[in-house]
């Protein structure tokens, strides 16, 4: 039910405009390269950043490094990426752009590598596609655009809620017709 009282679920992250931290010892810009989202916003900030110690990483969602600027082109899997991130200078600042699930995957990788939350800046997601976690069979679905969505694991129609887990980088999906099998709402685009 949408009502005016407090409709925004508080676990859904809010994203503030990215600000360059001038005093950082190293600036790392990580962008998801995909057809859905363009990293132009982050690229603009990268170009604006006056620091001489900055790098750009373009990554695909499966954590493969596609290309780099100010770094030699390479192809690195996520374990190697983790290793590289853990050797960043102590006072680094990392700016991330991409789909919401990609950004939280990167965020968690960076936190695991020893960065503090305030050292990681996430941009507003480049698209409204969501990762959805089925709360019944735990199947995780990528690039969900509509609610309800049929679970690829248990085949149940799932209502995609705004309740978000930063650990999973995902929204929760809940069986929409458990109380009445015929009660399936019209498909709506996620925002």
């Amino acid at each position: 039910m949408e009502s005016a009282y407090d409709a925004r679920i508080k676990s859904r992250p809010l994203y503030s405009p990215i600000v360059i931290r001038d005093n950082a010892a190293f600036h790392l810009f990580i962008a998801e390269e995909s057809t859905e989202g363009q990293a132009s916003g982050l690229l603009w900030i990268f170009n604006e950043c006056q620091s001489q110690v900055k790098s750009w990483l373009g990554l695909s969602a499966d954590d493969v490094l596609i290309f780099s600027k100010n770094m030699r082109p390479a192809s690195v899997k996520s374990e190697e990426l983790s290793l590289a991130l853990s050797s960043l200078p102590l006072a680094s600042q990392v700016y991330v752009s991409g789909s919401e699930s990609f950004m939280w995957d990167m965020h968690n990788l960076l936190i695991d590598a020893g960065l503090l939350t305030e050292q990681v800046s996430l941009m507003t997601p480049t698209s409204s596609i969501r990762r959805v976690f089925c709360t019944h069979c735990y199947t995780v679905m990528e690039k969900v655009e509509h609610t309800p969505v049929t679970c690829q694991g248990c085949q149940r129609p799932l209502l995609v809620r705004d309740h978000f887990s930063r650990v999973h980088g995902a929204y929760v999906g809940l069986n929409v017709n458990a109380e009445d099998v015929n009660d399936i709402p019209e498909k709506e685009a996620l925002t």
């Binding site: 407090d6 508080k10 676990s11 887990s165 930063r166 929760v172």
Partner: peptide, 22 residues
């Protein structure tokens, strides 16, 4: 769901509860 909510902060865990935030 503990499986979904594990690792959440207190306010995220209570994200879906009406009134309590505002």
């Amino acid at each position: 769901s503990l499986a979904f909510d594990a690792g959440m902060s207190f306010s995220e865990w209570h994200g879906p509860v009406p009134f309590v935030h505002s």
